[in-house]
Design a protein around this nucleic acid. Structure first.
Lengths: 205, 205
DNA sequence: TACTTTTCTTGATGCACGTCAATTTTTTTG
DNA sequence: CAAAAAAATTGACGTGCATCAAGAAAAGTA
């Protein structure tokens, strides 16, 4: 750990700053220390698709690690003041060779991400917006007592829209629909009360 | 290599047989030797989404390797007579610990797959069908002389439809559209002639 | 606390694409 | 090669959701 710490740089980003933008990534692994980072892609037509949100402890940059000199097109934007820990590609490679156990951990994380991504694709491809939204909510309930619980949305609704491959307008309407059906209640400050999770999940015609 | 070969089993599947189905996967790594395997998912509503097609040399099963006892929901079906090489999870772990270089290779492969998957999600989410189809074609041209080339579709149109998150009917129509525009020609036997790749790529309103 | 900016909501309208159904073409199989 | 099965095509029709626009609410800032 000490050795790693020795090689790592800490870097601060103000809200709105980019850790990197499409194509101009310097080959490093980024580990979020504090703050929040949106990772998204831009389509040809200029619409953005949210890929993932990085919270403290999460990392990104693995792509350039193992496939340097192949560019890819993600944007990483700090959505609030953020500090990250950067380790250069070269150094990471060293550590991985020296401590194989880290590779195994990494492989575990990567396969989880791959799983999520595949599920995400499948959902966007074949499920209706309301179904995607319900599944999204279900994924974000903190397991609590009983079947009713309240959750705090992990991101703004416009980001949920982007994540689910739809528009803010539609998301707004679908939330309304769920509320009308008595399945959820929209409280203040991104908090949602779910009356009954099973009922909610059943509501996907 | 010898050591690995010693642990590996070879297994044959007839066309239509499943290497594994959702949830009932035995913890092993599958490497395709001969034949072709469709990996897909089933949505709640029963529609399938093609995730990937395995050709000789490709592998799957990494998920259970690093996240055993977590089920996930992919189906792997041999679309023709296929032989695969199976290595038990336990043995793979051993090899990885012993030969760290393999982990690095694996990580490279995984990050490529992750990249593809993320791109796939983004495309399905925000691009129109015709754009997705064009991009799909562009990804499958073998780099050839000049700007015009012919490609052989790597899968049936119905599979392309499933892969791109749409229906066979729509795919059929979009191919027709592209042909009417003089951008491609549909030859016999899954062969497509692309007049000019740049023009094709420009055609995505 | 007032001001600015961002996010969210709501309505009206249109189209891309899914669905159902029927036919044709291609592939598979004995 | 003929018969059967699977895949592809074509038409008619309906709808889920995007889009544009404009106002309301919330969050951020001074």
């Amino acid at each position: 750990m000490d050795r790693i710490a020795g090689k790592a740089h800490t870097k601060h980003y103000q809200k709105g700053a980019f850790l990197f933008r499409s194509q101009e990534k310097d080959d490093a692994l980024y580990i979020v220390n504090r703050g929040k980072v949106r990772i998204y892609r831009l389509s040809d037509s200029g619409k953005e698709q949210l890929v993932r949100i990085l919270n403290p402890g999460d990392f990104t940059g693995e792509w350039t690690l193992f496939n340097p000199d192949v560019v890819h097109e993600e944007y990483a934007e700090a959505t609030r003041d953020t500090s990250v820990c950067m380790i250069q590609q070269h150094d990471v490679q060293e550590f991985l060779k020296e401590y194989p156990a880290i590779s195994l951990k990494l492989l575990g994380e990567m396969s989880q991400r791959l799983e999520r991504s595949a599920r995400q694709t499948a959902q966007v491809a074949v499920e209706s917006v309301i179904t995607r939204l319900v599944l999204f909510l279900a994924e974000n309930v903190e397991p609590e007592m009983g079947n009713s619980s309240t959750i705090t949305l992990p991101m703004a609704k416009k980001d949920i829209a982007s994540y689910l491959g739809t528009t803010p307008e539609t998301i707004s309407r679908k939330f309304g629909e769920l509320e009308n059906e008595g399945l959820i209640q929209q409280l203040s400050g991104k908090r949602i009360k779910i009356q009954d999770l099973d009922d909610l999940l059943l509501y996907s015609e």
